[in-house]
Design a protein around this nucleic acid. Structure first.
Lengths: 243, 243, 243, 243
DNA sequence: GATGAATGAGGTTTCATTCAT
DNA sequence: TATGAATGAAACCTCATTCAT
C-alpha cells in the first residue's frame, strides 16, 4: 500500500515524516469513509482525529474530492497489482482466469474499504472538481485491469482453449466476469438479509455462476467441479494471505 | 406509476389531496435526485419547486431519509410489477427468464431515476434514521422479486428444463442473474469510456454473458442464438413500451 | 432611511418585525463597515452582534456582497433624496447649484457611513457576484443625481445665467462639480494631517474652489463672496438639520 | 522606477541581492494588487510566484501591510518625481501648473497600479498595524508634492500672475486642483457608464473644469483655449512618454 | 393544517504568521 | 539565512429541522 517506500530511502527523519503524513491522512479518511460513507468523510473530522489542524490537511489535499480520488487511486493501484500477480499464476488459461477471480475475492476481503471507495467514486458526481491528471490515473488503471484479464482471454483463444463465435471480442467475456463479480460483491456488501431469500453462500454462488458463464462460452474447463474451489483457495492462500 | 390509485378509492376529497401531495413531493424529489445525486436532494429545494412550504413537506415525511426510502419503495414496487408482468409472458421456462432480463433492461431504460435511487439507497448508510416499518416494506419487495424469478427457476426444474447439481438451489441461479445484471448496468451507467477498453455494446455483452451462464447451468436453451434477442425485444415492446 | 414605512401600514406585529429585520441587519453592517472598512464587514460578526443566527442573516441576504449593495442603494437613495430637496430650494440658478453643494456637504456630515459605503463599493470588485437587478438600481440612482444637477445647469443656460462655449455640454459642468466634491471629501476623510500641509479649512477651500470653477465657466454669480457661505449654511440649516 | 539604484552604490553583492529581492517582491505584489484589489494580495501567492519561500518574504517585510505601505511609498515617490520634473518645465506660472496637471494625468496613465495602490491605502483601515517610520515616509512625500505645487502658486503670486483675496493661501488653490484631479480620476476609473450620463470625454471635462477654476481664481491665463491642451500634451510627450 | 422565519451545527476553504530544521 | 509545514482563527455558506403564528 505504502507505494512510495522506495522513494523514501535516504530521506531525513523529518522528510520521512512529511511523506508519511499524506499516507496517514488517507488512512484516517479511509476509516471515516468506511463507517459513514461519503457523508462521513469530512475535513473537519479528519483534522480532529489526526490532531492536526485543518490547514495542514489542506496543504496536502486541495479539497475533499482530492482525498477521495487519492483513495480511489490507491484502490485501483492495489486491485491492479493483485490482478497482475494473479495473472502470472502458472496454469492453464482457465486456471488463470480463475486466479483473477480469486484476486477479486481477495481484494474485497482484505481491503473492503477500498472496495467501498470504488463504489462511492463510481456513484459520486465529483469528477468536475477533480484535477484532470488524477482522473487520467484512474482511467489508466481501469484500462490496465481490462488489459490484464483481456490478455488471458486472448491467450486462451490463441491456445485453442476458447473459441469465440464470430463477432465476439475477448473483452466481452471479461465484461461478463467484471459484471458478475461487481454485482455479486455489491449485493453481498449491501444486503444483510440474503439468507432470508435463500442465498446462503454468496461466494459459492458467485464462483459457480461465473464458472457456468465461462463454461457457456466454451472455455476449456478444469477436470472436475471441485477443482475450481481448490484452485482459487490456493491462489488466495499463496498470493494474498499476507496482504 | 401512481401506484396507489386503487388505495385511494373511498377517501374523502381532502384525504385524496393529501395522498396526491405525497406523490407530488416524490415526483419532485426524483427529479432532483436524478440530476444532483444524493446531495442534490434538499428539503429546501423540494419545497421551493413545489410551491409548498417546508413545514408541509415535513408533515408528509418525517425527514429527508424517509423521502429517499419512499422513493426506493416506489422503485422496488415498479421493479416488482415489471418482473411480475414479465414472468407471466407465455413461453418456455427459458423464455420466461429471458423475459425477466428484458424487464430488468426496460426498468433501467424507462426509469433510470429509480435505478439511481436503488443505487443510492444501497450505498447510503441511512438505515438508522429510517422507520422500521418502511424498511420492512423494502425487504418485502426484495423477497418478492426473488420469489418471482426463483419461481421460474423452480418451474424449470419441475419441468425438466433445468437440472441442478446436488446442493444447488434455484435461488443461486437467480443470484447469478441478479449479479450480472446489476454489475453490467452499474458499469454502463457510471463509466463513460467503455468504448476505449473494447466494450462497444454493453447490452449485447450483458445478454450474451447471462445466456452463457444459464447455458452453463444447463438450462434448456432456445433453438438459436438470435432467438434470445428477438424474444427479449419482443417482450420489451409488448409489455413495457408504454411505461 | 426606513424607506418602506408606508408599505408597513396594516401589517401584523410579526410581519412588521420581519420587515424591520432587514433594516436592522443593514444598520449593524453599517456600523461594522464604518470602523473596519470592507474587511470589518463579516456575516459572522453581524450575526453575533444581532444575536441572530448566521442562517437568519442569509435568509435576508444571499451573500455578503448583497448586503454591501443594499447599503449602497440606501446611500444613493439618501443622496438622491437630498439632492432633490436641494434642487427645489427657491432662488437663482446659481443659488440652486450652491444648494446642491450644500446637500453634498450635508450628506457627508450627517451620513458619513454612507459616504464610506459609496467609496468602498466604488473600489471593490464585487460586481460579478451581485444580482443584476440591484446593480440596475444603483445605476438608476447615479443617472438620477446627474439628471437633477444637469437639469439645473440646463435651466441656467435656458435663463441666460450660463452660456457655455460651443461643444460644451451642461453635463460637463456637473462632472466638474462632482469631481471636486468627491475629491475634496475623499481627501478630507482620509487624511489627518491636512493642517500640516497648509489646508486649515478644507470646507472653505472646497466651497471657494467650486465657486471659482463655476465663475470660470461664466455662471452668473451671487452679488458678493460672503453670500455663498450664508446661502449654503441656510440651505443646510433649513433642509438638512434634522436628518 | 527602481528608485533605490543610487542608494545601492557601495553595497556588497550580498546586500545588493537583498535590495533587489525587495524590489522583486514589490513588483509581484503590484501585479496581484492590480488584478485582485486588496484581497488579491496574499503572501502565499507572492511567495509562490517569486519561487521564494514565505519565510523569505517575511524577512523583508514584517507583515502584509508593510508591503502595501512600501508600494504606497513607491507610488508617492513616483508621483513626487513626476511632479518635480513637471514643475521644472519652463514657461509662465500658468503653464507650470498645467504641466503639473499633465503629470497627474501621465501618472494615472502610465502607472495605473500605483494610482490603485494610493486608493487602497487611502481606504483601508490598516494604519494601526504599520510601523511608524514607514508612515512618516508617506507623510513626507505628501508634503513634498504639496510643496512643489504650492511653490508654483507662490511664484505666481510673487510674479503678479495670481492675486489671491485676503485670507486665501496658495495651498488652498492647490487643494482645489488636487480635489478635482483626484475626484475626476476616481470617477473615471470606477464608472463604466459615464457615456450614458452624458460624459463622453472625462479628460476634456477635467482639463476644462480645472482651467475654469484657475481662471476663476484670476490666475493669468494662456492666450487661447486651445493652448492648454497643446501645452499639456506637449509636456506629457516630452517628459513622460518613456515611462 | 399550512407557513416560513429562525436555528445552529456542520462543512469547506483561505491565509497571515510562526518556527524547527 | 532560507525553508515550507504547521497552525488556527476566521471567513463564507448550506441545510435539515423546529415552532410560533
Amino acid at each position: 500500500m505504502r507505494q512510495n517506500t522506495s522513494i523514501m530511502v535516504g530521506l531525513s527523519r523529518k522528510q520521512r515524516e512529511i511523506q508519511d503524513r499524506e499516507a496517514q491522512i488517507l488512512e484516517v479518511a479511509r476509516g471515516h469513509l468506511l463507517d459513514g460513507g461519503y457523508l462521513g468523510l469530512s475535513m473537519d473530522r479528519i483534522a480532529a482525529q489526526m490532531e492536526y489542524s485543518k490547514g495542514t490537511i489542506y496543504q496536502h489535499f486541495r479539497n475533499k474530492e482530492e482525498i477521495l480520488i487519492a483513495l480511489a487511486n490507491e484502490a485501483l493501484h492495489l486491485r491492479t497489482t493483485m490482478f497482475e500477480r494473479a495473472s502470472l499464476f502458472p496454469g492453464t488459461s482457465r486456471e488463470r482466469v480463475a486466479a483473477i477471480g480469486a484476486a477479486a475475492e481477495a481484494f474485497v476481503e482484505t481491503a473492503p474499504h477500498y472496495f467501498m471507495v470504488e463504489q462511492i467514486v463510481r456513484a459520486s458526481s465529483i469528477w468536475e472538481k477533480t484535477s484532470a491528471e488524477r482522473q487520467e490515473v484512474m482511467r489508466m488503471c481501469e484500462r490496465r485491469c481490462m488489459a490484464i484479464v483481456g490478455g488471458i482471454a486472448r491467450d486462451a483463444v490463441a491456445h485453442g482453449d476458447l473459441s469465440l463465435p464470430e463477432g465476439v471480442r475477448p473483452e466481452e467475456v471479461v465484461f461478463g466476469m467484471w459484471s458478475i463479480y461487481l454485482g455479486a460483491q455489491t449485493i453481498s456488501s449491501s444486503s444483510d438479509t440474503l439468507g432470508e431469500i435463500g442465498i446462503h453462500s454468496p461466494l459459492t454462488a458467485l464462483r459457480r455462476g461465473q464458472n457456468k458463464m465461462l463454461d457457456g462460452y466454451g472455455w476449456r474447463p478444469l477436470s472436475g467441479e471441485a477443482d475450481y474451489d481448490a484452485h482459487m483457495d490456493r491462489v488466495k492462500q499463496e498470493l494474498f494471505s499476507d496482504a
